[in-house]
Design a protein around this nucleic acid. Structure first.
Length: 209
DNA sequence: GGAATGATGTACT
DNA sequence: GTACATCATTCCG
């Protein structure tokens, strides 16, 4: 077990649900630098958010909420500050932070983390992957942190999976904005946010200076 | 190095 | 049947 617990870092503070609601794009930007922690029976694993994408309720044909609630996306329409975890391509899990008020259907997809705590646990969960890839990509980071569909709808302020906000928000010039990746519809909209120069990004040109 | 491919749940045509 | 907010592996140059 790591000595330095991620939820006792002095560079983060508790998430306030109200700060997510103003706009999902703003939330996606402000989540850069946040710390995501999962305390499970196997131990604690945590990483710093370095890549996010906003998915909106209106004029966003790439969003799961575009056609209203279903069994799968129900928590995306639920309370803000909770998790929306879904199965992607029948195999992978993707973790989102619900941002908009109940009934609206907006969320921020977390696409990559810088591993911080519980590296050995992550390595065991990611069997054979190099450290560089432990939390690279939305499916991979869920494996590394042990996040699965059971966490769908979890309250990220009180539950086993928690989100801690950076005390010092990333400066505008340290966040690269660009088009979302891995989608075909609305693929040109600048709704992806990346920590400039981070080596932990999933892919794409967003480490550009 | 890059492109193609298979795995496969959910939701749509 | 087809598309999809993915990833690891295989094949090719």
């Amino acid at each position: 077990m790591d000595v330095r617990r991620a939820d006792r870092r002095d560079d983060v503070r508790a998430l306030r649900v109200s700060e997510l609601a103003a706009s999902t794009e703003a939330a996606a930007r402000s989540l850069i630098g946040a710390v995501l922690v999962h305390q499970s029976v196997d131990g604690l694993a945590a990483g710093r958010v370095v890549e996010t994408e906003a998915y909106l309720a209106t004029d966003d044909p790439a969003s799961h909420s575009r056609r209203g609630p279903t069994a799968r996306n129900a928590s995306m329409f639920g309370a803000p500050g909770r998790a929306y975890v879904y199965l992607c391509y029948g195999i992978h899990r993707c973790f989102n932070v619900v941002t908009a008020r109940e009934g609206v259907g907006e969320a921020v997809l977390v696409r990559a983390l810088e591993p911080l705590d519980g590296l050995d646990l992550m390595r065991a969960r990611r069997r054979g992957a190099p450290d560089r890839d432990l939390c690279r990509g939305p499916g991979n980071l869920c494996v590394a942190l042990g996040i699965d569909l059971a966490h769908d709808g979890f309250d990220l302020t009180t539950g086993a999976v928690r989100l801690w906000m950076p005390r010092s928000p990333a400066r505008d010039e340290d966040v690269v904005v660009g088009p979302r990746v891995g989608i075909t519809r609305a693929a040109d909209r600048p709704l992806r946010f990346v920590l400039r120069g981070s080596p932990w990004i999933s892919r794409g040109p967003s480490t550009a200076r």
